[in-house]
Amino acid sequence: MLTKRSDGSTDVEFRLTAFEETLGWSLSFGLHAEILDPPFLRGESAEFLRGTLNDYEQSRSPRFFGRSGDPAQSRRSTK
């Protein structure tokens, strides 16, 4: 069910059976979505986001780049 709010936002309500997939899907909207219910899924979302923020604050090397963690190096040719 869709409910348009006076501030221009929309509430989306539906039944879930695949919570993990729903969490990933909702997080894909970034700042444009917020999980309101169920409380445990909202909590899992907050925990995931806190972990991500902690990774950035701790200045850890990016997980998807070359061994050095240097994004530029992962794009360099190794000829």
Rank of each mutant, 00 (worst) to 15 (best):
I35Q: 00
F65W: 11
P62I: 06
K4R: 08
Q58L: 14
L36R: 11
R50G: 03
T52Y: 10
T78H: 13
E34Y: 03
R42S: 07
F48R: 15
R75Q: 13
D55F: 08
D55W: 10
F19L: 09
R15K: 07
S6H: 07
R63E: 12
S26N: 06
T10M: 07
F65N: 04
T78S: 14
L23A: 04
G24Y: 07
E13A: 07
P38R: 01
S61I: 08
W25D: 12
L23D: 01
L27R: 04
F19D: 09
S68T: 15
D70S: 13
S28Q: 10
L36S: 07
E57D: 10
I35F: 03
T3C: 07
W25L: 14
P39S: 09
G30A: 09
F64N: 14
R5I: 02
S26E: 06
L2F: 06
R76S: 12
L53M: 12
D11V: 08
R50Q: 11
F64Q: 11
R63S: 15
S45C: 13
G69P: 01
Q58M: 14
R76V: 03
K79L: 07
D11C: 03
G8N: 03
L41V: 02
S6K: 13
E34R: 13
R63M: 11
A18C: 02
R60K: 14
T22N: 02
S28F: 06
Y56V: 12
H32C: 07
A33T: 04
T3N: 09
S28P: 03
